[in-house]
Design a protein around this nucleic acid. Structure first.
Length: 580
RNA sequence: GGCCCCGUAGCUCAACUGGACAGAGCAGCCGCCUUCUAAGCGGCCGGUUGCAGGUUCGAAUCCUGCCGGGGUCGCCA
């Protein structure tokens, strides 16, 4: 059930009638007609721009069209008031029964808030994709939470979603990992480790060294890289991936698929992808111009293998091979995306750190070329997380290997709080994460505020039980909701009615933060009603001695709880039953 | 210098993807409150949406050019 879609359908049907009666010309496109909540509640419950967008093609003044439409709409019992306003808006006021019906729908329809706009299309959400060279840090946590919530959101809106992690285990950095682990292995064997400049100094490799000793004894001591590099690389990356999976699990993130970059090497798939592009005339040998403006010191013209990304909107063509003949990072990534296309996804989403912004155009160009424009790729960039403690920047020094890990954040703040806070900002805005503030129990902590609203709903149900009022869902579904007549109550119901629409807007834009903002608004509306009960006892949810009215009001509270819980589920946050 | 992102109330951020008078929360000011659930409630003040043009019925949103912040710029991933 989506009330806005229902009313839009009514508007469209009415316009069709007007066309049939000759009031409007036949065959007008109604695509641009929208029904949405006005910014200003004084303008009514819903507004449509129909008259304005049709004025020009119909050759009639907008207000005249609006007037005719109003007459039609008023014939429907759901429409209580239809007023022409401003340049030709038609403002609608809906009958209380409509809002009461929303409460009933929430209590009886488990699919309330779900949508079918995804139409079962298969979408692949690739996120985190951190190098398997160490534990994940806060930045990764934000990407993980965002990707996971986006995936849930899309699933909620009718997409068939795959969560995927691209393991960057093929480049030079995993060799560095192997060398670093080897030193820790030597250390475990009683030798003095030499963590040279450029190796990973973090303590997390100590246990890997010990595990290596347990596995290999001292058989690798004193041997050259050619004997130990490959096996230790395997060993260490496997350990790192196990650690990363644990980290993700601590945040409640579970991937459907892990894809290995390394597996692409030697499989012929990189070559195949590039051959495909070459056949399209998009791979060639050529010389790049130096970057405009700032030319690097050591720049020298050099012929190399290039992808013609400029054919699909990039600014320059991009190399796929390094000067030593090995692939650039881009080459296997092209093959990887081709693989995703080949697996039949209708739509791809990549979630990158903001420092990869320069990579976006070439990746989109590659996907456009390989899918011949059939598979859209949306790339969401995740901005930095600024860690704070008591309003002071929380310093981290990655170089020293003692950066703040995802694990530490989750241990201090908890998974629910971490997730919620990281979703209260748009992905392309920097996020401040203050360890103290996120745990505060005050109004300006959105996590607390929303959880408190849910806890109050549960409290109402407990109180009803104490008062001997039946308040199970079946009973509430049969409550006499016509008793919900106060504007404060109907206002809350209006907010609940907006939920399905909010899901669709958020899903269409790949913007899970909208869910967090909606939750804040809904909680605010609920708290406001609760607080009015202080002075106006008639607005309290439990009305001593009046079971029927109590049940209607409790149904409203319960419906609010259901929607909060459903929205929190998309964000991957557990609703609180009581505050401690 | 090229490209990408950001710039909105004193602060932190929204704005339904082009809709009406740009909204919340903090902070500030003025009242109220000692509780159906306690960590408060109501109201007021606060704006040239960085600047200047353009597109149109209508612009924070789209286009052009500037200003400021961040990121990035063949052989890192």
């Amino acid at each position: 059930m989506n009330l806005f879609a229902d009313i839009r359908a009514l508007v469209v049907a009415s316009l069709d009638q007007l066309a049939a009666e000759g009031v409007l010309p036949a065959g007008l496109s109604l695509d641009a007609v929208v029904v949405e909540p006005p910014r200003d509640p004084a303008h009514g419950d819903m507004a449509t721009n129909a008259a304005m967008v049709l004025a020009r093609p119909a050759g009639r003044p907008p207000r005249e069209i609006a007037q005719a439409l109003a007459g039609r709409l008023l014939a429907d019992p759901r429409i209580a008031l239809a007023e022409v306003a401003g340049p030709g808006f038609l403002n609608l006021r809906l009958a209380p029964a409509v809002w009461q019906g929303v409460v009933h729908a929430i209590l009886t329809d488990p699919g309330f808030g779900r949508s079918t706009i995804g139409a079962g299309q298969r979408v692949n959400v690739e996120f985190v994709s951190a190098n398997p060279t160490g534990p994940m840090h806060v930045g990764h946590a934000r990407g993980a939470v965002f990707g996971d919530a986006l995936a849930s959101l899309l699933a909620h809106a009718g997409w068939d979603v795959t969560r995927e992690y691209y393991v960057n285990d093929g480049g030079a950095q995993v060799d560095v990992l192997a060398r670093s682990a080897y030193e820790r292995y030597r250390e475990a064997c009683g030798e003095a480790p030499q963590i040279a400049e450029g190796l990973y100094p973090g303590d997390y490799l100590i246990e890997v060294g010990e595990a290596l000793k347990a596995e290999y004894g001292d058989s690798l001591l004193g041997k050259g890289e050619d004997t130990w590099l490959a096996p230790i690389r395997e060993f260490a990356t496997a350990r790192m991936m196990a650690m990363i999976r644990d980290d993700l699990a601590s945040l409640g993130v579970k991937m459907d698929v892990y894809s290995s970059e390394k597996a692409l090497y030697g499989s012929g798939r990189i070559e195949a992808a590039l051959d495909r592009l070459r056949a399209l005339g998009l791979v060639y040998e050529g010389v790049l111009e130096p970057p405009k403006g700032k030319t690097p010191e050591d720049w020298e013209p050099r012929e190399q293998t290039l992808f013609r990304s400029t054919a699909h909107g990039d600014d320059v063509d991009r190399p796929v091979k390094k000067s030593d003949g090995s692939w650039t990072y881009f080459a296997p990534d092209i093959a990887y995306h081709w693989d995703k296309i080949a697996r039949g996804f209708d739509q791809l989403i990549d979630i990158f750190g903001a420092d990869h912004g320069g990579y976006v155009k070439r990746m989109k160009a590659a996907v456009a070329a390989l899918s011949e424009g059939r598979v859209p790729l949306d790339i969401k960039l995740i901005q930095l997380v600024k860690l704070m403690k008591n309003g002071q920047p929380f310093k981290m020094s990655k170089r020293a290997g003692n950066f703040v890990t995802l694990r530490e954040v989750v241990e201090q703040a908890g998974a629910d709080v971490t997730r919620f806070v990281m979703l209260t900002r748009r992905n392309d805005m920097a996020l401040e994460f203050d360890f103290d503030k996120v745990l505060e129990q005050t109004r300006d902590n959105p996590v607390f505020y929303v959880q408190y609203a849910h806890a109050r709903v549960m409290s109402v149900l407990r109180r009803a039980a104490e008062a001997g009022i039946a308040a199970d869902d079946a009973t509430l579904a049969g409550a006499d909701l016509a008793r919900l007549s106060h504007d404060a109550e109907l206002g809350l119901a209006r907010r609940l009615a907006a939920w399905p629409r909010e899901v669709e807007i958020a899903a269409r834009g790949n913007e899970p933060h909208r869910i967090a903002f909606y939750l804040n608004d809904l909680a605010s509306e609920f708290h406001a009603l609760w607080n009015r009960g202080h002075d106006e006892t008639g607005l309290r949810f439990v009305q001593e001695g009046d079971q029927a009215t109590s049940q209607a009001k409790i149904a409203l509270a319960r419906a609010t709880g259901v929607v909060i819980s459903s929205a929190l589920a998309i964000l991957g946050v557990t609703p609180a039953n009581e505050m401690r």
